[in-house]
């Protein structure tokens, strides 16, 4: 099949950037979207042009590296699917395909389709952990955890940190990402001692990074390749209000 690509090219954070058109003639419907871009890049190299820079690694939908806005949607048209798991059979011969980076105030563009998502790391560093040194752990079965609670924590823990939620949100909010991690830990008995501190610190850091707040668009949930539910945002808000009442807003 043939496709007409319109790809965002930007040679660094300070470059203005623009959409560039490319025609690809020999696309197989069995290719993944990234394999289609591989073909484009091989052609560009042979022509002596710089290939399109994009992040990718595992190509199994779990590492969270890849993330492109395809035809206006983070990770493209398939729901619950990362960019690397999207295949060309979902497109038609002759289609125009628009490819852009994840855009959000807190994600600056590194080059072309690659963005800086280190803000997510810093949010995790602010409190996305349980302080348990190696050596101090009790037997793993010492604290039974109800199956439904463990399952719910696992639903939240499925987050791959790709950034699609913030890229999809009209407010540029990272609430789904923050809620997923804080809820996973706050649901579990092991996470209780640091529950209040955790949620306040993570929300505080999220705001510092320049992410917006949540006003219930639910675009994050629609874009999330792991189908993480916005109910976790409600849970985080509840945890946050309780924490603020108990401990104030100052971290």
């Amino acid at each position: 099949m043939k496709v007409k690509l319109h790809i965002w090219r930007q040679n660094g954070p300070n470059d203005k950037g623009k959409m560039v058109d490319y025609n690809l003639d020999n696309v197989s419907s069995d290719m993944s979207f990234l394999e289609m871009l591989d073909i484009l890049n091989e052609d560009l190299i042979l022509k002596g042009e710089e290939p399109v820079v994009f992040e990718h690694d595992c190509r199994e939908g779990i590492c969270g590296s890849c993330g492109l806005v395809i035809n206006g949607k983070p990770h493209g048209p398939e729901s619950g699917t990362t960019t690397c798991q999207l295949h060309m059979r979902k497109f038609k011969d002759g289609d125009d395909i628009f490819v852009e980076p994840f855009r959000s105030k807190a994600f600056s563009i590194v080059k072309d389709l690659m963005v800086d998502r280190s803000a997510y790391d810093r949010i995790q560093q602010s409190g996305g952990f349980i302080s348990a040194n190696v050596g101090s752990a009790p037997d793993a079965n010492a604290i039974p955890i109800a199956k439904n609670i463990a399952d719910l924590a696992m639903d939240a823990a499925a987050c791959i940190g790709c950034g699609a939620c913030a890229a999809a949100c009209p407010n540029g909010s990272a609430m789904l990402f923050v809620a997923a991690k804080s809820s996973q830990l706050n649901l579990l008995p092991q996470g209780q001692p640091e529950k209040n501190k955790r949620v306040r610190a993570m929300i505080n850091q999220m705001e510092k990074e320049g992410f917006g707040g949540c006003s219930n668009y639910y675009e994050c949930e629609a874009a999330c390749p792991k189908n993480i539910s916005v109910r976790f945002i409600a849970k985080m808000n509840r945890d946050y209000f309780v924490a603020v009442v108990k401990e104030g807003t100052k971290v």
């Binding site: 348990a132 752990a137 079965n141 039974p144 199956k147 463990a150 399952d151 924590a153 696992m154 996973q184």
Partner: peptide, 19 residues
Amino acid sequence: IDQSVSQGVPFAREYGGYL
């Protein structure tokens, strides 16, 4: 396993709450 559980790794559990 002890260490991972203490960090909040959500391993699969039985209805009784055990791993």
